[in-house]
């Protein structure tokens, strides 16, 4: 686009300032994790590695991390299956009630978390009469994760059109063979992206989690919330936060490589 020099500079400056402001609080968390102050006061009175040592020995945090990973993995797996099925149905068929199905998929994420939370809590305990446990948490998470997989798969299916699939069928491949050899390879990277988003969504969720996790089931966000206000634990929470932020680069890098590969494939 033909933009004046000034416009480019202004836009660039805004972007830099905004990104700076986005990272400032995270930087403060990092400094708090090595600050001698327990109450997060600024500027840090001194520096220490004590909290890092304490955090790495904290069994509560490590167990919570394990729980979070397991819950997020199962929830994403369920969301992958259901989201893909829904995406194929809505992108390849025209039928009555299509808009309603679309709304049904979006609704769990569009409605406030607290509504979803108390609705599921009430359904599990009163309607079904079961105790909250880890599986109730997984079911709740899978429900609001479907939309991320669905959106990614649906976009890809719509962009691809049906020509390749038709060609495959014309050449004699059956429905399943076509899916396995034509549709799935094309969908794969978008499913990875959707699955990653679902994992992230589940991993970080706190509101629905509060209402659907059984006693004794502590995910990392629940652990953080419980420990945040304890004075001696506050810097330990900051350490966990820094570790999480650093670890988060891995899935992002995967997602980036996937999109880069896609771009290369399209260019060919």
């Amino acid at each position: 686009m033909q933009l004046g020099r000034t416009a480019r500079i202004v836009l660039g400056t805004i972007t830099v300032v905004v990104l700076g402001l986005v990272y400032l609080p995270l930087g403060v968390v990092f400094l708090n994790s090595i600050s001698t102050s327990e109450s997060l006061s600024w500027p840090p009175p001194g520096f220490t590695l004590e909290w890092w040592g304490r955090a790495l020995e904290s069994t509560g945090a490590l167990e919570a991390l394990g729980t979070s990973v397991v819950v997020a993995l199962i929830a994403s797996a369920i969301a992958l299956v259901l989201g893909t099925l829904a995406a194929i149905a809505l992108s390849r068929y025209r039928f009555f009630g299509k808009e309603t199905v679309n709304l049904l998929i979006v609704l769990p994420i569009a409605l406030p978390g607290i509504v979803t939370g108390i609705a599921l809590n009430n359904a599990f305990r009163t309607l079904m009469g079961v105790d909250l446990a880890m599986w109730t948490l997984v079911v709740a998470h899978a429900t609001f994760c479907i939309v991320t997989v669905y959106n990614n798969a649906f976009a890809r299916l719509n962009a691809s059109g049906t020509r390749l699939e038709e060609a495959s069928m014309d050449l004699g491949a059956g429905l399943f063979t076509t899916f396995r050899l034509v549709t799935f390879p094309y969908l794969k990277s978008s499913l990875m992206a959707g699955g990653l988003l679902a994992f992230a969504l589940s991993f970080d969720e706190i509101i629905v989690t509060t209402f659907t996790a059984g006693t004794g089931v502590a995910t990392l966000p629940l652990w953080i919330l419980q420990n945040m206000f304890r004075p001696s634990q506050a810097p330990v929470v900051a350490v966990i936060a820094v570790i999480l932020a650093v670890l988060s680069v891995i899935p992002l890098a995967i997602a980036q490589r996937l999109t880069a590969k896609d771009a290369a494939a399209v260019a060919r």
Binding site: I224, A241, L252
Partner: peptide, 17 residues
């Protein structure tokens, strides 16, 4: 990237700020 940093951690950072 900040999306992956925990929601609570970010709120917590603002509490400190």
């Amino acid at each position: 990237a900040p999306l992956w940093a925990s929601y609570l951690v970010k709120v917590y950072a603002w509490r400190a700020l």
